[in-house]
Nucleic acid binder design. Structure first.
Lengths: 418, 418
DNA sequence: ATCCTTAATTAGGCAGGTTACGAAAGTCAA
DNA sequence: TTGACTTTCGTAACCTGCCTAATTAAGGAT
């Protein structure tokens, strides 16, 4: 029953209305009409359809206005769910969220740094048990959003990086997971996912253009324009971790020189801390530790606690990130930049303050509007939640782009670049 | 007659069809159906309407296919015109283009570095005489595209920079020109205009995402996604001239440090040449010259001719531009970057070669697709032509966004950033 | 000449919106 | 309490823009 075709008719209008209801949390039909530009008649009908599908429920009356009071409608969070899976270098986070984007279950585990043939069944098992323990019926799950760092072929559902192990390169992750789980699987970039996550949670103005810097082990970026991810030509946009901060800097495995990640990323900070006499011992860093994030967390904790050495490292990193943020703002003309991911979660306030400072100093004169630096509302799990949200968005509010290629064929007589 | 309402009905479909016809130059109805995804019936009707407006004409038959031969249709270039006006620091270029984007008249003059009250009437007079001498009837002119460097409030039609003189800041340029000329006036960024100019001329794959670096006195940037300019939150996106190339670099009036423009821009090169002993005399540079572009042209000419000193300067500039291009490609994920504007027109091949080299070295490993660096098909006047093209695009192929604000009001219950 | 193939037009229908209007449900003042 | 007024929401009738299906047009092959 729940698996009735929710994309039955007029998918675009339904999606638009659903999106406005979500953003407003609770809204009346007249307000919906004003917000969407549709008429009351159309709204009435669309809302009735949505209620028929159980996606939306009426909830009380609005404030008295002198006439018939407005009846408010809101999402029925229990109507549908989606799963977000984030693959980091060695850890994996799985979340289940409801229609409103709220987390209803979460688990995480280490040890995915193995070939996909062995890792993906583990992931699938975790998804299965998480859904079971959370008591979520399978036919109410819209799909799985799989997010990861690094370049990828989103359409093909394939990673273009030989990490964590060589076998991952070009391995059909999406297809494999779809087969094992029996659920639609979407692949996307972690930072892009974190960015839309903010939108879905209502943390940003829906009309705005904003960016996101996502920092876990590496540094990624995403930009959202009016609720949609900026994709570029191959969905590998906003690779902010590998823009050059110094034309004379060290060569990076990526091919570029002086990459941001090598100055400001957690790996770089841990390396710098280990190279600073005395600091490593004082913070209890383990030079042989495999997990960069926990080592970085120690540095961040020390910086927060007032350790001068640690704070110096973090501030240096923040200054570089500030410059990168200015570059992002210059190029994308954003209203705000969200800081998301586990590494900002442990040292967010230092980063936020310093990046905002750099932004105000470097951008102030040139623009009518300021650029705000804000922490993510989804904290450490922003990417996984964002992955789940991407599924919600693609299944509910976008105009149902069929997964089987483009609707519109290539213009026949169009010339290539000559 | 020519001023009949060309946006009569189904503006979106008409725009789409017109755009495909333009891109293909000559195309049959069946091919139009395939390219747009519409059916032959709809295409028939739309094409008939377009022919009724005189925008499109039948032109011969297609190659035999075994059945009834296809009748080809193409744009009627003489049906409509538009005007492009580019304001540089001290010079102004005015062009008239036809529907196909081809230049039918051009003029340029110096001496706009005066208050707008005096400069704009001059510009208007030039537009008037250019239209008159070209023999273009006024009611066939769709409008004027005014393009300029620096930050601007595109909606309000106002420049946000106190250049060339203080009075320009916040002066209602668009409104003033509209009044004097009696034609619709659009304000836009010169680099963004140059970028769409390429699209309209059929120089790029219509489905691609590509960037443009525009270099006149300063350096600007633009990005086009599927034929539409990437705008960001205030239409001041892709300010590539002011991204930082060195976190320890000199402070720029813009507020940032180590701005690209101060390493690689023509002003910087002229300054560097004047500071190089012997070079200034050898190239015949005038330390008191007001016009940077002609001085830069001397350096470029010498570099092309093999002067080692001059070539060194240009190559240094090209290397910096190469790094900036890599940053642009990293963030926007573009297929190609077009080099446009007068400064590339005089030293294009050196720049193109070196920027392509940097791109291949710095980006190669990370992506499935390469990024091509290509010269503009519109050469030195790319921005002015682009300005005219923006008018064509807005009047003909876009879904006719009325100039009086947004069609869709703000979502009522939507929360701001909290 | 007749048939086959492909192109373009015509005719009719449906989806998804619109405007116009009326019923329902409240507030407010006499 | 009651009638006047305001506002919401649903229904009815219509309009636009596309579709499908059938028809006409214009070649080539047999």
């Amino acid at each position: 029953m729940a698996s009735s075709p929710i994309w039955a008719s007029r998918p675009k209008t339904r999606g638009l209305v659903l999106d406005v209801i979500r953003a407003a949390r609770s809204i009346s039909r007249v307000e919906l009409a004003a917000a969407t530009g549709l008429t009351g008649a159309t709204i009435s009908e669309v809302v009735r359809e949505l209620m028929g599908d159980g996606l939306v429920v009426e909830a009380g009356r609005g404030a008295p206005t002198g006439g018939k009071p407005r009846t408010m409608v809101q999402l029925n969070p229990l109507a549908r769910y989606s799963v977000g899976v984030q693959l980091e270098r060695n850890t994996c986070v799985v979340v289940v969220v409801d229609l409103a984007g709220r987390q209803v279950a979460r688990t995480s585990f280490q040890g995915v740094a193995m070939p996909p043939e062995r890792a993906l069944p583990l992931v699938a098992a975790q998804v299965d048990t998480l859904l079971a323990t959370a008591g979520v019926e399978r036919d109410r799950v819209l799909g799985v959003g799989l997010v990861s760092y690094g370049p990828q072929d989103r359409r093909a559902g394939v990673l273009l990086t030989p990490q964590p192990t060589d076998e991952w390169l070009n391995y059909p992750v999406t297809r494999r997971l779809t087969e094992t789980l029996g659920l639609p699987v979407l692949l996307d970039n972690d930072a892009a996912a974190a960015a839309v996550g903010e939108y879905w949670m209502g943390a940003v103005d829906p009309r705005s253009t904003y960016g996101c810097i996502y920092m876990a082990t590496g540094i990624g970026g995403g930009v959202v324009v009016a609720g949609a991810v900026y994709r570029g030509s191959s969905s590998n946009a906003v690779e902010i971790g590998h823009i050059s901060m110094d034309v004379n800097g060290d060569e990076c495995p990526c091919g570029n020189v002086g990459c941001l990640e090598n100055y400001a990323g957690p790996s770089a900070l841990v390396r710098q801390a280990l190279a600073t006499p005395g600091l490593a011992q004082r913070l209890g860093l383990d030079p042989t530790a495999a997990d960069v994030l926990t080592e970085f967390a120690r540095i961040a904790a020390a910086a927060n606690a007032g350790d001068t050495g640690a704070r110096g490292l973090v501030e240096r990193s923040a200054r570089y990130l500030g410059h990168a943020a200015v570059t992002m703002a210059c190029l994308f003309d954003v209203d705000a930049i969200v800081l998301a991911g586990p590494s900002f979660a442990v040292a967010g306030s230092i980063y936020q303050t310093m990046i905002q400072q750099e932004m105000d100093r470097r951008m102030f004169a040139r623009r009518a509007h300021p650029v705000r630096i804000v922490p993510s509302v989804n904290g450490s799990d922003a990417a996984a939640i964002g992955g789940a949200v991407l599924v919600l968005q693609s299944e509910l509010t976008l105009g149902r782009p069929r997964p089987d290629g483009e609707a519109r064929p290539a213009p026949a007589g169009a010339a290539g670049l000559h």
